[in-house]
């Protein structure tokens, strides 16, 4: 109920959309009805690229893998950089130089390096090359730039979390007899969690944006981003708009999902006296 006011503007836009495309007018923009029609049949094959569900599944899988690698690397790096001034000094130059290199800008480079190798090829499953198989769709180069896009927000968020641990808590831990490692596991990390979750949220948002954009570039023929480009080229704007709706929804879901996971740690920390 409390989300109702938020729906006002989108509803108005949809109304306008309905009016603009209604009444048998011959418009370029498909009507909401046509887009809905596409959305309601997620398992139907669209323009022989696979169904909506399949495309979404492919994009999501890529993001999940890239994001998890980014988190697995980013959180430990951030923890160490946050805890040690020396490490931070050594690595900050590299990090600051690497950060502005946008993940998308690196796509051509990564294709050159990874030569469009897929996971299927990695695992020696060459014979699957012409079948519709997920492993076939996971290109190393693409996973790499997803990793690149996600890792920096995660590192920075984690560093922020570690550095913002309250001195009072560190002193209390020391006086109560906690050694360095014990303090790190039981005081620093729980205290840093809200900021780490924030970094993860930013990271997954970036990953999602990167994959959609990357799929629009040459190098792949599956995924929701690819579907957007291809359906545009074939003038099937109803599919295109349906894909855009999916992109937006999933982006929101991913972000909200992480926010939900991080809620508890944030609440605990923010309610202290």
């Amino acid at each position: 109920m409390k989300y109702l006011p938020g729906f006002a503007i989108p509803c108005l836009l949809i109304l306008w959309w309905l009016i603009a495309t209604g009444g048998g007018r011959d418009t370029l923009l498909p009507s909401p009805g046509e887009v809905l029609n596409v959305l309601l049949h997620p398992l139907v094959d669209q323009i022989s690229t696979g169904s909506l569900a399949w495309s979404t599944f492919v994009s999501l899988s890529r993001v999940m893998l890239g994001f998890m690698l980014a988190a697995l690397a980013g959180i430990p790096i951030g923890l160490i950089m946050g805890a040690s001034v020396n490490v931070r000094k050594y690595f900050s130059l590299i990090v600051e130089m690497a950060r502005p290199l946008s993940a998308i800008a690196l796509l051509p480079l990564s294709i050159i390096i990874f030569k469009a190798k897929t996971f299927a090829q990695l695992f020696g499953l060459e014979h699957l090359r012409y079948q519709k198989n997920l492993l076939n769709e996971m290109q190393l180069g693409m996973i790499f730039i997803l990793f690149w896009g996600g890792v920096f927000p995660i590192i920075l968020g984690t560093i922020q979390g570690v550095r913002s641990v309250r001195k009072l808590h560190l002193e209390a831990a020391e006086i109560l007899g906690a050694g360095k490692l014990f303090t790190f596991r039981n005081v620093i990390i729980p205290s840093a969690l809200p900021d780490i979750y924030h970094g993860l949220k930013l990271g997954i948002g970036r990953c999602w944006m990167v994959i959609i954009a990357a799929e629009m570039l040459p190098g792949t023929n599956s995924g929701i981003g690819y579907l957007i480009r291809f359906s545009y080229q074939l003038s099937r704007y109803d599919i295109m708009l349906a894909s855009i709706v999916i992109v937006a929804s999933i982006g929101a879901l991913l972000s909200k999902g992480l926010e939900f996971l991080g809620e508890k740690s944030l609440v605990l920390r923010s309610r202290e006296r």
Partner: peptide, 14 residues
């Protein structure tokens, strides 16, 4: 063994 109680308690909120 030396122990300390802070003015603000300093309990760990998590």
């Amino acid at each position: 063994v030396i122990s300390y109680v802070f003015q603000q308690g300093a309990l760990f909120p998590w």
